[in-house]
């Protein structure tokens, strides 16, 4: 169980997830399924069962910060985001940029940078959010528990049919 965590989650170097959660803003109006598929490269697209997660969690805020109209749970965020106002944007990618370390971002920090300077990139926002919770509730945490490796992925990880020959007859030293 604990060991499931070892199997890791994760990741794709090149996979930048851009679609998803382009959902409107009314409290109970959410998609039942979301396919996270853009640039699926090393791994197949993930079909995210949103309805199941809605049932499984107590509140949208478990995943969505304060954007769905719930008060912010973090005392640091609450200093500014003190109301329970529903935001126009709910999806992760609306705030979490795919490429936060572009030269442009580094040299011209965006407004609010002082507080939002430690914002994970989109891929990490997902993985940190999902895996962090899955570790606590014993959800799946292995990479391929959520998304199957593509051929490009096998090549990248030198696994499957691209496994090193050496691995077959010698394991280590």
């Amino acid at each position: 169980m604990v060991n499931v965590g070892k199997r890791l989650i994760t990741g794709l170097g090149v996979l930048v997830l851009t679609s998803l959660f382009t959902v409107g803003c009314f409290a109970m109006d959410y998609p039942d399924e979301v396919e996270i598929d853009s640039l699926a490269n090393l791994y197949e697209a993930v079909v995210f069962d949103h309805a199941m997660h809605v049932d499984a969690t107590d509140s949208c805020a478990d995943c969505h910060h304060h954007t769905t109209g719930t008060p912010s749970s973090s005392e640091y965020c609450a200093k500014c985001h003190d109301g329970a106002v529903e935001m126009d944007v709910v999806s992760c990618q609306d705030c979490h940029s795919g490429d936060p370390v572009s030269a442009e971002n580094l040299h011209n920090p965006q407004p609010g940078y002082f507080y939002h300077n430690d914002k994970p990139n989109l891929k990490a926002a997902y993985h940190l959010n999902c895996v962090g919770c899955h570790q606590e509730v014993d959800g799946p945490t292995g990479c391929e528990d959520c998304h199957a490796k593509t051929e490009a992925g096998e090549k990248y990880y030198r696994s499957g049919e691209f496994a090193p020959e050496a691995a077959a007859h010698s394991s280590g030293h």
Binding site: R7, T10, L128, Y157, R158, P164, A166, A167, S171
Partner: peptide, 29 residues
């Protein structure tokens, strides 16, 4: 934050054109 997925090792191997590893990068042994 690290979950030990070894993706960074795979990325380095590709980027730096390093020789084939002894074991696949998703082999956690």
């Amino acid at each position: 934050r690290c979950v030990g997925c070894r993706t960074c090792e795979a990325a380095c191997n590709t980027e730096q054109k390093l020789p084939e590893p002894a074991k696949p990068f998703d082999d956690y042994s």
